[in-house]
Design a protein around this nucleic acid. Structure first.
Lengths: 100, 100
DNA sequence: TTACAATTTACTTTTAAGTGAAAATTATTT
DNA sequence: AAATAATTTTCACTTAAAAGTAAATTGTAA
């Protein structure tokens, strides 16, 4: 579905892929959990953004962490987050941190 | 109130000091967040236990972390927890980890 | 044997997480 | 330019789960 050639995906597609409401993606953005590229005012999510979001969901629903905790760990550039993270997600995470 | 000479305090006193219900302390214990000394079947909390509990409360109510996240960090012996922790609390935390 | 602490069960409260709908904004088409 | 379409934003609401607690029961030390 998300091949390597295409570099970005609109919010509705991403929401559908993740099985969540697009409003939830706006919600996460408010918390600075993800920061999709903007062309005009439209959002485009990279493949790494999507992997990152999948990882965040895992932290929430498999580990039981709450958003606030995840954000605290992001801000502290914490090893916990990076530890069991797939390589490309780490990459995305680092890009994400670099941007702020 | 909790001077250095006395080494341990019963649950009701601790609850009152922390401004919480004693049931909440049992609740935290269920999550292995604290592990008071048992003499007979009665619980005795050390000064360090109390400091530790205060720190846990700060993480919850000032930082907005949830119990599950705190527990995850404890299990991973995470730097986040220890970072901004007063020295004696770190000590208590390490004793706590040593016990399990 | 009684008084107090621990335990259990099930309940209440609180709040985070998520969402629906309408309004606003920007882009697109004719 | 007006109409239409698409996306974002806002506001208020719902839902679900975590956190906390009450009450009844059990256990046990003194």
């Amino acid at each position: 579905m998300f091949n390597e050639v295409d570099k970005s995906y609109p919010i509705e597609l991403v929401a559908e892929f993740l099985g969540i409401n697009s409003r939830t993606l706006y919600y996460y953005e408010k918390f600075n959990l993800v920061c999709p590229l903007r062309r005009g005012r439209k959002r485009y999510y990279s493949k790494e953004d999507i992997n990152w979001l999948e990882y965040v969901r895992e932290l929430m629903y498999e580990q039981g962490m709450n958003l606030r905790s995840i954000i605290i760990l992001i801000k502290r550039r914490d090893a916990v987050i990076l530890d069991r993270c797939p390589e490309d997600v780490v990459l995305c995470y680092k890009n994400y941190l670099a941007r702020k």
